[in-house]
Design a protein around this nucleic acid. Structure first.
Lengths: 147, 147
DNA sequence: TCCTTAATGAGAACGATTATCACTTAGGAC
DNA sequence: GTCCTAAGTGATAATCGTTCTCATTAAGGA
């Protein structure tokens, strides 16, 4: 395992132990390149390392959510959708409703939202913003395989 | 049933039929005055009209989501949280994490978000914003019963 | 190398939500 | 007001995403 990959594992799991299963899970998350459900991730991991259990994927997802390596970006048919977060700065996600691509968007709303909340008599502690739209490739009518 | 209440029923259910159960469900949603789960709503409805089944509450919630009378404003312990929407204009919700109070906030971000999305190569179709904070009463340390 | 304990895989359990079905009733047509 | 039909209802079973349990394995510090 090359050092940069080890660094990725630390980003993904923090102080948790890193096993072969978790290595495969972090690698699969990064490879998918768009929003994924736990089921998608499990399928993808199984191709890298057969035999990894679904419960293990759920546990790894919980760990990666804890470190902020991935984030929940919505739901699809009642299943939670996750995406890998680039960098650590506060940001939101732009999700393509056609192909599932996810683009991080640095947050520039903090001051504005805090002011709106204050006017309404609230002290803002956090906010969630998710944008849905169509990415360039999908707008052009390209199928996911042509990209 | 007084006319204004009938108008509420139309707001809640649109062209759907209005039964006693649905009248009680819409009334209970309005009475709760903060974010509620389906279970909360069921408990509340049962006090107004005993015997209403949980499935009926789920069906009424689906109908009220369809008309925009209520909206999903997040989740709590894996259960969906709903709140009654005042008026019909596009708005977001400010949720008090202490008492569950929900305040609507007119949306003033549309142009800004569309621009951010366009810069990232997306055509924005929709967005979800939820703000979490502490309401005035909770900040003052008032317990929910003192209000 | 040893030892502790976190991680694992399999499958059971859980729980929110949805579907089914026989029965009831809202509300339009007359 | 009466009829009729389809939508709504309550009870309960089914579904399915997610979490828990438990015996076993293995990560990684001493």
């Amino acid at each position: 395992m090359i050092p940069s990959a080890e660094r990725d594992m630390h980003r993904a799991y923090g102080t948790h132990r890193v096993s072969n299963a978790r290595r495969a899970i972090a690698e699969a998350s990064a490879r998918i390149g768009c929003a994924f459900t736990v089921e998608d991730l499990h399928r993808s991991v199984t191709r890298i390392l057969p035999g990894v259990g679904l419960a293990t994927v759920y546990r790894a997802v919980a760990a990666m959510l804890g470190t902020g390596y991935i984030a929940c970006v919505g739901t699809r048919c009642g299943k939670a959708l996750y995406a890998v977060c680039e960098g650590g700065a506060h940001h939101h996600h732009l999700v393509c409703t056609s192909c599932g691509a996810v683009t991080p968007l640095p947050c520039s709303l903090e001051a504005q939202l805090a002011t709106s909340a204050r006017r309404a008599g609230y002290t803002l502690t956090s906010h969630e913003v998710t944008l849905y739209g169509t990415c360039n490739a999908c707008s052009r009518g390209a199928s996911p395989l042509e990209r």
